[in-house]
């Protein structure tokens, strides 16, 4: 098991290297704007732009730039300086991390806490009105884009913009330590908006898995033993039906982080996603690099955790 984890970590490092190279190459080869010109401001002289370009090292060859960047990451965990904000990327990401963690963790809880029970109830009450309503609603939630759903949520429930001004609106986020009440109020809508599609998808998956599981032979055995139906479903059914969802959830955390970029933008939450969005708008290569690597790192770790967890959940899976 330890050998497996070490091997996976090494592969993860290789993957991150590849990701960093790809983002670097993409933005070097297909620049959206000249960072030096952006930084020099309006009506800058060509000399000034050239000087800035030299300062930033942008006049060096591609491989030299990449090499310098890579050395910084590996030796000092240094993600470079943001062109736009003139501040270290790492510090900027770290300072925005609590907001993103608040958003992603909360959305994950909503995702699982809503999706799984809805799926279970739908499977048990199959073909009932409740089943049809929730599954129909799930289809809508899966189909609705995050930014549209976010705007609708703000329009309906957001303070300042909504018909029913129940929760904090756009830009109302404050750190948890500052004002827990407002923190919560500002995050309720983003949590549900970000979680909606995931919860809906997992409700449908959970329903399908449970229905399939309930026709398995070992469920018949459980019934033949004289177990109550609650125990047959709750223990024998769910154990088999939900285990595959654990793996899926690990993979989908990457998608959740992608959704967080849009959610933070719509709700104006000062998190890593918003930072990434701004970085892209401003062609801020080090900031883009930093956020992409950061996201990739989390996905690699989440996948590893899930794979290891799966070996514990499903005794038939063993890693060598």
């Amino acid at each position: 098991m330890i050998a497996y984890v070490v091997r996976r970590l090494l592969w993860g490092a290789v993957l991150l290297l590849l990701v960093s190279f790809l983002t670097f190459a993409i933005f070097y080869l297909f620049p959206t704007a000249d960072p030096a010109a952006l930084r020099a401001g309006r009506s800058a002289t060509p000399q000034l732009i050239a000087q800035i370009r030299h300062q930033l090292g942008l006049d060096q060859p591609f491989y030299d730039q990449y090499w310098i960047y890579l050395k910084g990451i590996v030796l000092h965990f240094d993600l470079g300086y943001s062109y736009q904000n003139d501040a270290p990327v790492r510090a900027q990401i770290m300072s925005r991390l609590p907001a993103t963690i608040s958003l992603a963790l909360g959305a994950f809880v909503v995702w699982i806490a809503v999706g799984i029970p809805v799926g279970i109830v739908s499977a048990i009450k199959r073909r009932s009105l409740l089943d049809r309503l929730t599954m129909g609603g799930a289809l809508v939630a899966i189909s609705a884009p995050v930014y549209w759903l976010g705007l609708v949520a703000l329009f309906l429930f957001g303070k300042g913009t909504g018909r029913l001004q129940l929760f904090g609106g756009a830009g109302s986020y404050v750190p948890l330590g500052e004002n827990p009440g407002q923190w919560l109020s500002s995050l309720v809508l983003p949590w549900f908006v970000l979680a909606a599609a995931f919860a809906a998808f997992y409700a449908r998956m959970g329903r399908g898995n449970l229905i399939e599981t309930m026709s398995e032979d070992y469920i018949r055995t459980a019934r033949a033993k004289g177990l109550s139906e609650a125990r047959v479903i709750g223990r024998h059914g769910l154990r088999a039906a939900l285990t595959p969802l654990v793996t899926m959830a690990g993979l989908d955390i990457g998608l959740l982080l992608g959704g967080a970029v849009l959610t933070e933008t719509v709700f104006n939450i000062p998190g890593v996603g918003r930072f990434a969005y701004d970085a892209i708008i401003n062609s801020d290569l080090p900031a883009i690099q930093g956020t992409v690597l950061f996201g990739a790192f989390f996905i690699v770790i989440a996948n590893l955790v899930v794979d290891v967890l799966y070996a514990y959940l499903d005794p038939r899976v063993r890693y060598g």
Partner: peptide
């Protein structure tokens, strides 16, 4: 009936691999 099932009348099935729960010892 549930109290009789398993206690007074027990049943075994065709394929013991699929009839035993794969996740439980």
């Amino acid at each position: 009936l549930r109290r009789i099932r398993g206690k007074r009348i027990a049943m075994i099935f065709q394929d013991p691999l699929s009839s035993l729960h794969p996740y439980f010892r």
